[in-house]
Simulated assay, not measured.
Amino acid sequence: MDRTSGFALAVLTSLIFISGCATSPDSEEASNQDTAVESGSTASSITDPYENWNRKVFAFNQGFDDYVLRPAAVGYQTVVPGFADVAVTNFFENLEEVRNFINSVLQLKGEHAVVAAGRFTYNTVFGLGGLIDVATAFDLPKRPEDFGQTLGYWGLGSGPYLMLPFLGPSTPRHLTGRATDGLVFPSPYDYAESPDRYYALVLEVVDKRADLISAEGMLSGDSYVFVRNAYLQRREFLVNDGRTGKDPFLQQGNEDVMLDNF
C-alpha cells in the first residue's frame, strides 16, 4: 500500500470526528462569535467566517452518521464483548505511539518522546502486541502528539474553523498535519493484502465511533456550536500542553465537559 493509500486511511479513520455524537443542529443562523482556538504559544480567538457553509456540511455529516456509521457502531458494541472492544481500541492506540514519538522529537519534548517510546515498547512486548495497555500501569500515560500540534508548536497559526465532508471539524493547520501524518508515518496497513487491509480499516473506524456513543448525552444547546467549541478547545489544549486561555465551555454552561476523542 503506497503513501497515497496511507492518506486515504487517515481520511477514513478521521470519520470519528463526524459525530459530535450525532444530533441535528438546532439553528441555521450564524452566530459568528469568537471562540478559543489552538495556537502555537498562547490562546487566541477566531471567528467562524464560513459558518453558513459549515452548518450545511455538519448536517450532511450527521446524516451519514445517523444512517451508516452509528448503526454500525451500535451493532459492533452489541456483538463484541467489552474486553474485546477495549483490546481493539488499545491495539490501534498503541500504533499511534510511533506518531507520538516522532512529533514529540520534532517539538523538542524529550520527556514526551521517552514516554511514547516506553508505551510502545511495554504494550507491544508485554501487552500482547498492544491489546493490553500495561504502560499506564507503569505510570506512562498516553500523551498524544500529531503534526498539526508540531506546526502549532513552531508558531504556525491555525486558520479559520472548517467543517469538512466526512472529515468533520478541522482547521487548515490540523488538516495539513493530519495529511502529513497519514503520508509519512508507518501504518500496519502497508503490509496487509486486500481485502484484509480494508477490513482492518473499517474495524478501526467503527471501534472509534463506538467509543463515542457513551459521550452522546453531553451534547446540549446548539450542537454545531457545541462541537465547534469542543473541538477548538481540545486542539488548544493539545497544542499548548494543557495551558488553555479563554474557555468556550464557560460560555455554553458546560464547564466540566471535555471531548477527548476530538
Rank of each mutant, 00 (worst) to 15 (best):
I16T: 06
P71V: 07
S104F: 05
V86C: 06
P172D: 15
M218L: 15
G75I: 04
E96Q: 13
S14L: 08
E28S: 08
K142L: 06
L167R: 02
S19K: 08
A192K: 03
S44Q: 13
A22E: 01
S158K: 13
H174I: 06
P248Q: 02
A73W: 15
F166K: 05
V239P: 03
A59S: 14
L250H: 13
D133K: 09
P49N: 04
T180Y: 15
T35G: 05
V225R: 12
F262Q: 06
T124F: 11
L156K: 09
Q252L: 15
P49L: 07
P188V: 04
P248F: 07
E51H: 04
G148I: 02
M258N: 12
W154P: 08
G155N: 07
N100F: 07
A200R: 14
V68D: 00
E193Y: 11
A73G: 15
L238Q: 05
A43H: 09
A117L: 10
N32Q: 11
T47A: 11
R228C: 09
E93I: 07
G82S: 13
V134L: 13
Q233E: 11
G152T: 04
L232D: 02
L259D: 08
T23N: 04
E93V: 07
G182W: 09
M1Y: 06
P25N: 08
D211H: 08
R178N: 10
R234M: 12
V74Q: 14
L151H: 10
R197F: 06
S5N: 06
Q251M: 02
A22V: 02
D211T: 09
L203I: 10
I102W: 15
R178T: 15
N52R: 10
A116T: 09
V227L: 01
Y199I: 09
R209A: 07
P188D: 01
A72N: 02
S45Q: 05
A135C: 03
D207S: 15
T176E: 10
R99F: 03
V184F: 13
L156V: 15
T180R: 09
G6R: 05
N32W: 08
T176F: 08
D260Q: 07
T180M: 14
S27C: 10
P186Q: 03
P144Q: 03
V79M: 14
P188K: 00
T35Q: 11
Y198H: 12
L212F: 02
T35D: 10
L162W: 05
D48N: 13
R119W: 03
F120A: 13
G242Y: 12
V205Q: 06
V257M: 08
L95Y: 05
M258Y: 04
K142W: 04
V115H: 05
V37W: 04
P71T: 09
F83Q: 12
I18Y: 04
F60V: 01
N240F: 00
L259Y: 01
Y76F: 15
M1S: 04
V80N: 10
D181G: 11
L212Q: 14
L69V: 00
A87L: 07
G159N: 00
Q77T: 11
F249S: 09
L69M: 12
M218I: 14
P141G: 12
D65S: 14
D260M: 10
A43R: 08
T23D: 07
L167D: 01
E29C: 10
V68P: 05
L151D: 10
Y153E: 12
Y50F: 14
S45H: 15
Y67A: 09
V37T: 10
V227E: 00
S104H: 03
D190I: 02
A22C: 03
N100Y: 09
R3V: 02
I16M: 00
V184C: 06
A179M: 15
V98E: 01
